[in-house]
Amino acid sequence: MASEESALSPGRSIWAGVLIGVGVAAFLDETVFHQLLHWHHFYDRSTPAVGLVSDGLFHAFGWFATVIGLIMVADLVRRSGLSGRALAGGVLLGAGAFQLYDGTIQHKILRLHQIRYHVEIAPYDWSWNVIAVILLLVGAWVLRREGRRR
């Protein structure tokens, strides 16, 4: 039983975490920067079509990923196969990956919208993407330690 679980669970826990991480990052982006601060714009009139498609895809995927990630956690708990550290590492990786994609590809290359308007944008971009890389690094470190413990 134990061998079967350790073969099954960390991978699933990590994937559940990655899905939740992407969803949480997309959700925070939407609530904090669009709705609360009003820094981001719904649409800033300089976005090409491909930017809108990318935004639509990640917007739709974020919600779906959150729901599926949470139900995967419930399923792992039911099978007593949840690894909390693997889950945490996955959440950090997912959130960091989305943040980095959003900050580089969507904001800069696809010009979806900028982080804030009428300000010097460089410090905002650097903060955004450095935070993303830190999330990724911490996530990778948590998963590495978790891998060693096994």
């Binding site: 719904f42 649409y43 009139r45 809108l52 498609v53 935004d55 639509g56 895809l57 917007h59 739709a60 995927f61 919600w63 779906f64």
Partner: peptide, 18 residues
Amino acid sequence: TLVLAGAAHAVLAKSLWV
């Protein structure tokens, strides 16, 4: 299919905004 349909719906909404 759900994700792609959701994306197509979101893109249409933004295109209507524009």
